[in-house]
């Protein structure tokens, strides 16, 4: 056995390799996310002040919608040829599958957020007041927070009927705390943090991420294995 972490990294590497070999799918995802942002700006009309004020919200809503597609896709490749069963039988520790998949989904979402950032800046006319490293850090923690429960629920939904409807239905309400925190934090980076609120929002987001990585790590084997 190559150990839990070693196996996790191998699963991650495999997912990234597949993602790279199917770049067309990745491009489609990026275009979908950009199209979502464009639609938001159309729906909002030409009110620049309002657009700037809500830019963080639209950016994360666009990411959230795209994450539904990428999460679903990351388990669709596992259900083709029952590849997940194959992984289990090698044998791979289900917790390693969780860690690898969650890391993969986090990276993908993070990448997507970095791609969307210039688009947001251009469309909604925002300025990065508090510095780029802070923003990139917020994006990373935000992606981590969405990916952990997302991976657990995508695994459940991928085996159930009507999985495409089920995943957002189950996941959106759970993610509301993370979404509020990450939107607030992003907003503060755009607009400036006069009342020093960024820390408490980041603490909330970090707690959410830690709780769900832990829960996912503990509960994912139950999702994957018959007991």
């Amino acid at each position: 056995m190559s150990g839990l972490l070693g196996q996790s990294l191998l699963v991650l590497r495999k997912d990234l390799l597949i993602e790279w070999r199917t770049r067309a799918r990745l491009n489609a995802l990026i275009f979908f996310a950009i199209a979502t942002l464009l639609l938001f700006s159309f729906a909002l009309g030409p009110d620049t002040v309002m657009m700037r004020k809500h830019a963080a919200g639209y950016l994360w809503l666009g990411l959230l919608f795209s994450s539904m597609l990428s999460l679903g896709e990351s388990f669709r490749i596992e259900s083709e040829n029952l590849a997940m069963d194959g992984l289990k039988l090698i044998p791979v520790d289900p917790r390693a599958i969780f860690l690898g998949k969650t890391m993969g989904n986090t990276l993908l979402l993070w990448l997507l957020s970095l791609v969307l950032l210039p688009v947001t800046i251009a469309l909604f006319d925002v300025t990065v007041t508090l510095g780029w490293p802070t923003l990139v850090g917020i994006f990373l923690v935000g992606s981590m927070a969405i990916s952990a429960p997302g991976t657990v629920y995508a695994a459940i939904a991928s085996h159930a009927r009507a999985r495409d409807v089920l995943l957002p239905l189950l996941l959106f309400p759970i993610l509301i705390p993370a979404l509020l925190a990450v939107v607030k934090a992003t907003h503060l980076v755009f607009e400036g943090d006069l009342m020093d609120q960024l820390k408490s929002w980041m603490r909330l987001l970090g707690c959410f991420a830690i709780i769900y990585w832990t829960l996912g790590f503990l509960l994912f084997p139950k999702v994957l294995e018959d007991d």
């Binding site: 629920y153 705390p177 829960l215 139950k222």
Partner: peptide, 18 residues
């Protein structure tokens, strides 16, 4: 059961965030 646990743990976080 997995979802019940995840949902319940979400409630306090939800409360504070809102």
């Amino acid at each position: 059961s997995v979802m019940g646990i995840i949902s319940y743990v979400d409630l306090p976080v939800l409360w504070f965030s809102v």
